[in-house]
Design a protein around this nucleic acid. Structure first.
Lengths: 152, 152
DNA sequence: TCCATATAGATGCAAATGCATTAACTTTGG
DNA sequence: CCAAAGTTAATGCATTTGCATCTATATGGA
């Protein structure tokens, strides 16, 4: 009953801003990486998760949970990363279907190089535009827009 | 000199939230459209701009400015829209290169149907989560992150 | 134990995207 | 008036995405 079919003007505006700004910023960061001859952002996301996971690595399905990429997307992304020597696939003992993905030294190095560029983009695109308090407020507000884990 | 190479933790968090939430919400809205048997969001953006432009229509390059799509992207999207009878391409009198794109009655109807679903998504995904004041605050903060028109 | 069902990950094929280039004009400057 | 440069839009080709399906293994009952 509290469901509204038509959004308020404030909601429409916030939505439009969110979509437009996030796209602009993403493209801007992507551009900076490309200009530096580095791989796209998607690679960073995966390398980042794997780096955080450490020696134990992660199963592909865990990467899917963490990154929100589609299953086939991860599957192929990992194939590319492996072909580039940035990750390695290890068989997993107690589950013959699966594999464990671990970042290689080369993968860590690539991530480091990407962060030098990506981090600068973040600093310039958001860090330089809003105060720490404002950034915290943005995070808090956006946090309330997150979707519940799964509507299944 | 005021350039920071490394972003603050607040900036990183805000960035991460922005990217993740915008992607989630976008996908959610996209999903709702697909479930209703309607075309993707990109089509809505174009139909919306054209509907606002009225009888005069818009030139493709104007659509590019307004929607931020790449040139080749618009070119092909318009081809698809035309094939579906949602827009029509008219030669433009004073410039033999160009064309004017005008939305058809069918295009307006499709946009209307899409808005029924899309608007509901916006209402549920953001309108129901934050107050009007909070939404206004989000818009204002995000507004400060917009990129200057063109760094060319 | 054996079968039905579920889960992990890969893949064939169609559609969409990105990139570079091209074709068809317009505009500008001499 | 003409040549050079700029603009508008389309397109060939490679890469990526999306969808559905498929293979292989695991699990949970009868």
């Amino acid at each position: 009953m509290t469901e509204k079919a038509t959004p308020s003007p404030e909601a429409i505006k916030a939505w439009a801003r969110l979509m437009r700004v996030s796209r602009q910023l993403m493209e801007s960061a992507e551009e900076a990486l490309k200009a530096a001859g580095l791989p796209p952002l998607a690679w960073y996301d995966v390398l980042h998760e794997l780096a955080e996971a450490g020696e134990g690595g992660l199963r592909p399905f865990q990467l899917i949970e963490r990154t929100l990429f589609a299953q086939y997307n991860i599957s192929r992304l990992l194939a590319r990363l492996e072909a580039d020597g940035l990750v390695e696939k290890l068989p997993v003992a107690d589950d013959g279907r699966g594999q464990t993905i671990r970042v290689t030294a080369s993968g860590r190095e690539t991530r480091r190089q990407m962060w030098a560029v990506y981090g600068r983009s973040i600093a310039e695109l958001v860090g330089a535009k809003l105060s720490a308090d404002e950034l915290t407020m943005v995070s808090a507000l956006l946090g309330r827009l997150r979707l519940p884990p799964a509507g299944d």
